[in-house]
Design a protein around this nucleic acid. Structure first.
Lengths: 229, 229
DNA sequence: TCAAAAGTGTTCTTATTACACCCATGG
DNA sequence: CCATGGGTGTAATAAGAACACTTTTGA
């Protein structure tokens, strides 16, 4: 292969680890490939980047085509560029992860989404390409970031209970947290607005509902506050 | 431009933020561009990635061509891929930073290094391309990582004093640290080997020399230890 | 009245901060 | 003998960890 031909075969793509939370488990949205290479294998949703498209825009596009959602939390993690990571040529990929409210996701605006499915992290088998490595890196990044910034709320409905929030942290961090200490810490940050509403239709004492107060967070950050859990 | 022609003009590069520490200031190694675009401007050392070259390998190559050094600390940060970031076509770049012992660097193995120069972070003016943004991102990453992993030692000579180590942290983190508390914390980690040697030729009480004990660090990590300063 | 999850404080332990003086050396 | 940076300990405060019972609701 001449050098020029080699450059011809170079391209770049984005791949997106889409996280969701179903109330008890952290999940990731995978698609089943309908074409070679890796036909039939599960893979991260992704696409080649258009020549006149920013990387971030491409990642947003992939997300929207699959879920119909716009304006959700999206973060670049890093590039993966091993020479042989793609069997058909030189393709480096830029990995992103995004956080969506799983209830906002309804199946299949896009045709290829017929084969999209939420997987628990334990159930993810061998993926196409180097997507297991990409997933691992994005998960590690999420575990880190969720402790340093109030991004967990992106995975919850607008109104949530403290127990739901705790379960979210427990499933992302893969650890158990003490209920009283968790509540003390979260509430002491003064970032949650008590809605004076409670759960309905539960067969036990209904929990109070809270909302994340983003304005207050922005104000506190300007005053030197930094989120930490 | 046809779509095919557009793809022709796509390429990817690596850019490397090379940090060094001169005993009192954190510095970054920049080169002065000898050709258009941005001829005469200071820029991060970087190059296009060869078709059969891994991204990490390309970053190592750029570093070695400029400094002659191999096997130094190198970390990918992220990709920068705005459509118009490069005036001659679509070039996305993968940003790396590396940490070298400034004393190991002697000028100019490579011809283009005639125009390489260490800059204090305050003295960095307007750089070529989006290199200011890349530098900012890498610096932010370094500030974070240096607190979470024992990478500061990569910037120091093999034997160093506690005061040198403290000055390193102070200049990276842009903060002042309490001498007694810093020493207490560092020494309590048991990662420094007391060499039973002292400085020579200083016009004051000579300081003890220490060495970072990497083996012990690896052992402690295996036992659950995590570096934090 | 039972089952199920919500809600709530205190004590103990550990980590962090603040702070000032004497020591060893070269000039 | 002076100037320079090296080296050291303690007390106060804040943060984190451990821990168990009562309350409210629907079935």
């Amino acid at each position: 292969m001449s050098e020029v031909e080699s450059f011809f075969k170079s391209a770049f793509s984005v791949d997106n680890v889409i996280f969701g939370f179903d109330g008890s488990d952290l999940k990731v949205l995978l698609i089943q490939r309908g074409a070679a290479p890796f036909k039939g294998k599960w893979a991260l949703p992704g696409d080649l980047v258009y020549p006149n498209e920013d990387l971030d825009t491409a990642a947003e596009r992939v997300l929207e085509q699959l879920t119909g959602l716009r304006g959700v939390y999206l973060e670049q993690v890093k590039a993966f560029g091993a020479v042989n990571r793609h069997p058909l040529g030189r393709v480096i990929t830029i990995a992103y992860y995004s956080l969506i409210k799983i209830s906002d996701y309804s199946v299949t605006p896009a045709s290829f989404a017929q084969s999209a499915k939420w997987h628990s992290l334990g159930e993810v088998g061998e993926l196409a390409f180097d997507h297991n490595e990409i997933l691992d890196n994005c998960l590690k990044e999420l575990k880190h970031k969720v402790r340093m910034a109030p991004i967990g709320f992106e995975l919850l409905p607008p109104k949530f209970t403290l127990t739901e929030l705790q379960q979210l942290y427990e499933s992302i961090l893969e650890t158990e947290l003490d209920k009283r200490n968790f509540r003390k810490k979260i509430l002491s940050m003064n970032l949650l607005q008590d809605l004076d509403e409670v759960q309905e239709g539960v067969a036990h004492r209904p929990a109070k509902l809270y909302r994340f107060d983003r304005k207050r967070y922005v104000k506190f950050v300007a005053e030197g506050f930094s989120f930490d859990i």
